[in-house]
Design a protein around this nucleic acid. Structure first.
Lengths: 188, 188
DNA sequence: AACTTTGTTTAATACATATTAAACGTATTA
DNA sequence: TAATACGTTTAATATGTATTAAACAAAGTT
């Protein structure tokens, strides 16, 4: 096996693993493979190049790229004299992780909070209303307790997402730089 | 609209919102509805009761419950004299969140770390081998840099998941208790 | 042991989503 | 303005996953 084959095989392993695990970000393996293609590419790619490389249609590439753009996993690039749209990976895994939370999870937290608060208000009215039957009253009280527990959790979740957006989370879980050069090390 | 209808409608809103947002946990809306059914139920339910309530087959309920069990979102319950299996929700949203990370995300982090480290080793050999062609050598060096960046990130991700498993994350993002009773409050 | 009850697996079906070819709109070039 | 290049949308198809009925296995009851 020559050296080029070794390199290809090494990349193939990463692509295989990565494109499957990307289901955690809610994307399909084929979108994951596109991400990996861009990841290993040393230059921005066009839709035609992607289509060629992955053997898929241009329409698929267009949709896949849009998905990755929405997740902030790829970015548009620009090159003088090139009319076609070019794309490169956003090669910061931390940012990718944080962006995912500040879009998808934030949306869920917001939606849930709204529904929960509206419902809590309604239940409150039901509970204070003297016409409410005993059976419904008891159920409403139980539901209230559960929903307030959830509301508290969504508040916590929002603060967790805040800490990712502001990167304050890195104060708590610091990045351990590997090839730390001398000038980066704290002084004696 | 009588009080029972108001209660039902209130629950319906939560169920609607929640069962859709649960796609973040990688489960389908129908599994989400099952989770909500158990959430609002004031007693453990059997497969037959779930099937009845949601109008689905017993086989579906069996599969759905297993999925929720794997995610630690429901637990088996037991009642004297009841032969059928009983299930209740694990009603701790924080725990549910943490469990999700310590299973799904941990698995991804572990898998990716292994693939990445194995590949880094291979690339290292390729780089130190004097027979490697210049073209491959250059590519290998670029790949190395990217992969080491990722390895660092997986290390960070693992430590984040650690902090959820140990709940140390709550030292950084504390829970804001709402109906805090006097005895819970810190002394003067 | 024979008969029930309960939960799971299997194989078939229904449903949803990913993918594509073709039509379309828009910008660029000549 | 006509002609070309490019990306997106649309409508149809392919593929995969969710769901179910029926067969099966395991445990409980008589």
């Amino acid at each position: 096996m020559d050296d080029m084959e070794i390199l290809e095989q090494a990349r193939a392993r990463i692509i295989e693993t990565k494109s499957n695990n990307m289901s955690l970000y809610g994307v399909t393996p084929s979108i994951g493979r596109l991400y990996c293609l861009l990841f290993f590419s040393d230059k921005p790619l066009t839709l035609d190049e992607m289509k060629e490389e992955l053997g898929m249609s241009k329409a698929s590439m267009s949709l896949a790229v849009r998905t990755l753009l929405e997740l902030n996993m790829v970015e548009k690039a620009w090159r003088k004299g090139v009319r076609k749209d070019l794309y490169v990976v956003n090669d910061d895994p931390y940012q990718r992780f944080f962006d995912y939370f500040s879009t998808k999870w934030r949306l869920a937290a917001t939606t849930n909070t709204k529904a929960t608060e509206k419902t809590i208000t309604e239940l409150q009215e039901l509970i204070t209303n003297p016409d409410t039957s005993d059976e419904v009253l008891e159920q409403a009280k139980l539901d209230m307790e559960k929903l307030e527990n959830w509301r508290e959790y969504y508040d916590w979740l929002n603060r967790l997402i805040d800490s990712m957006e502001t990167k304050e989370i890195l104060d708590f879980i610091p990045i351990r730089r590997e090839n730390q050069t001398d000038k980066d090390k704290p002084g004696i």
